[in-house]
Computed example of a mutant assay.
Amino acid sequence: MPQHVSVYQLLGMTFLVLVTVAWGIGLAVMLRRGRAEAAMRRAQSLSGLPDQRQVGPEREAVELTPVEQDEFAVLVRRLSDH
């Protein structure tokens, strides 16, 4: 033990380190428990819903006539000028 450190300072520092470690462990346990409980609540509350589709609707396409393509090109040019 260094000469310039008293026994009370050493005990105080040891106590603070132990309290900090205990606080960190307690915080980790509370967060883990809260996360697990939230996941269980979420799973229970959504159990009555039907399974969701994983794929979206099919893409739709419309063929334009040559006149419609020309009008669309004019519209695009007008909008890009502004």
Score class of each variant (00 low, 15 high):
P2M: 14
Q3Y: 11
Q3A: 15
Q3P: 11
V5H: 14
S6R: 03
S6G: 09
V7H: 14
Y8I: 07
Y8F: 14
L10N: 08
L11F: 04
M13P: 00
M13E: 13
F15C: 13
F15Q: 10
L16M: 07
V17C: 15
L18E: 09
L18V: 06
V21W: 03
V21G: 02
V21E: 03
A22G: 05
A22K: 01
W23R: 13
I25Y: 01
G26M: 01
G26C: 00
V29I: 11
V29S: 12
M30F: 15
L31Q: 12
L31Y: 09
R33N: 10
A36G: 04
E37P: 00
A38S: 10
A39I: 05
A39T: 02
M40I: 07
M40A: 15
M40F: 11
R41G: 07
R42S: 12
S45A: 14
L46P: 01
S47H: 05
L49I: 01
L49Y: 02
L49N: 02
D51S: 11
Q52M: 09
V55S: 15
V55R: 11
V55N: 13
G56S: 12
E58R: 06
R59I: 08
R59H: 08
E60G: 11
E60W: 02
E63D: 04
L64N: 00
T65E: 04
P66I: 03
V67F: 11
E68P: 01
D70G: 08
D70H: 05
E71T: 06
V74G: 14
V74I: 08
V74H: 13
V74T: 10
V74S: 10
V74W: 11
L75K: 05
L75P: 00
R77Y: 06
R77G: 10
S80Q: 14
S80K: 12
S80M: 14
H82N: 15
